[in-house]
C-alpha cells in the first residue's frame, strides 16, 4: 500500500471517531472504566509490595564480638563491615562500642545494684547491620562466623520474620497476577464486544467497500486507527482519573493511619509511579483498541 493511501486511511479513521460519536463514546467509556480499575489495582499492588519490602529492610543482622576480643580482632571486623558497605552488601550499620553498651545497660536496668562492679570492659562491641538485600543474610552470617573475634553464639537475624514476609509477598504476587489476568480477560471481552457492536452497525459499509473492490487492509486500517485512537484517549483520560482518585484515597488513608496511630505504613507517591501507570495504560488501551477492531472487522470481511 502506498504512503499516500495510508495517510488517507489514517485520516479516514480519525474522522470516523467523531462521525460515529455514540459508538466512539461507548467504546471510550468501556476502555476508560477498565483501565481505571486496572490502574487502581496496580496501585494497590505496588503499595502493598513496597510496604512489605520495606518491612524486610527493617530486619537487621545483630552480632557481638567476644568480650575478650583483642583490639586487632576488633579492627579486623570493623574493616570487614566497612568493606561490605563499600561493596554494597551492607546498606547501613550501627556500631556500639563497649562504653555505649555499658551506658545503655545502665539505662535499661532498673536496679543499679546489678551494675555494681561492672566496667565497660565487661561489655562486648556490637554491630546492627542492615543488608541491602535481605536474602544475602545466610551468606553474610557465614562469613561473620569466620572471624575469631565474633561471638558466633550472639549472631541474631529474624530469619523467620523474613521468611514470613517473603511468603506474604509471594502469595500476594500470585493473587495480584490472578486479579490482573481476570481483569484483562474481562476487559478484552467487554471492549471487543463494544467494538463488535460498532462494527456491526457499520457492516453494510464494510460490505459496500468489498463490492467496490477494496482489499481487506484498505477496509481494516481505518477501523484499526479508530480503535487505536479511542484506546489512546481512554488511556490518557483514565490516567488523569486514576491520579485524582489515588490522591483522594491517599489523603484519606493517611489521615486514617494517623488517627489510629499506625506508623510505618507509607503510601507511595503517585508521581513516582505516574510514568509507569501511564505506559501500562497506553499500551493496554492501544493494544485492546487495535486487537478489538482487527477481530471485529475480520468477521465481516468474508463477502
Amino acid at each position: 500500500m502506498k504512503i499516500r493511501t495510508l495517510r488517507l486511511l489514517a485520516k479516514e479513521g480519525t474522522k470516523n471517531v467523531y462521525k460515529n460519536k455514540l459508538m466512539s463514546f461507548a467504546s471510550l467509556a468501556t476502555i476508560l472504566a477498565t483501565l481505571f480499575v486496572l490502574g487502581l489495582v496496580l496501585l494497590i499492588i505496588v503499595n502493598v509490595t513496597t510496604n512489605l519490602e520495606a518491612k524486610k529492610q527493617d530486619l537487621q543482622v545483630k552480632f557481638y564480638l567476644r568480650v575478650d576480643a583483642t583490639r586487632l580482632e576488633e579492627e579486623e571486623v570493623a574493616l570487614f563491615i566497612e568493606q561490605s558497605r563499600a561493596s554494597g552488601v551492607v546498606a547501613e550499620y550501627q556500631y556500639e562500642s563497649r562504653e555505649q553498651a555499658y551506658e545503655n545497660a545502665k539505662k535499661d536496668l532498673k536496679y543499679e545494684a546489678l551494675m555494681e562492679g561492672l566496667t565497660p570492659e565487661n561489655f562486648a562491641v556490637g554491630y546492627f547491620v542492615t543488608l541491602t538485600n535481605p536474602n544475602d543474610s545466610d551468606q553474610f552470617i557465614a562469613r561473620l562466623k569466620l572471624f575469631s573475634g565474633v561471638d558466633s553464639q550472639w549472631i541474631t537475624y529474624p530469619k523467620q520474620e523474613l521468611e514470613r514476609i517473603s511468603g506474604m509477598v509471594r502469595v500476594f504476587n500470585y493473587v495480584a497476577l490472578f486479579v490482573i489476568a481476570v481483569l484483562m480477560v474481562i476487559s478484552i471481552l467487554l471492549i471487543s464486544n463494544t467494538i463488535r457492536l460498532t462494527v456491526f452497525a457499520r457492516r453494510k459499509e464494510i460490505e459496500i467497500m468489498k463490492y467496490v473492490g477494496a482489499n481487506d487492509w484498505f477496509i481494516r486500517f481505518p477501523f484499526i486507527i479508530e480503535g487505536m485512537l479511542i484506546g489512546l484517549l481512554g488511556a490518557l483520560l483514565s490516567h488523569l482519573l486514576t491520579s485524582q482518585a489515588y490522591g483522594w484515597i491517599k489523603d484519606g488513608l493517611n489521615t486514617l493511619f494517623n488517627s489510629i496511630k499506625i506508623s510505618g505504613l507509607q503510601l507511595v507517591e503517585f508521581g513516582e509511579l505516574s510514568i509507569r501507570i501511564l505506559v501500562v495504560n497506553v499500551l493496554f488501551g492501544v493494544t485492546i483498541g487495535i486487537i478489538g477492531s482487527f477481530m471485529s472487522v475480520k468477521k465481516h470481511l468474508n463477502v
Binding site: M1, K2, R4, T5, L8, K19, K204, E205, E207, I208, M209, Y211, V212, G213, A214, N215, F218
Partner: peptide
Amino acid sequence: VFQDFRLLPNKTAYDNVAFAMQIVE
C-alpha cells in the same frame, strides 16, 4: 450497481465516487 444503491451513508456524492478511485490508489 444494486437495487438498493449501496452508497456509503457518511460520505457525500463526490466522496462516494472518489472512494472507488482511492481503492485503486
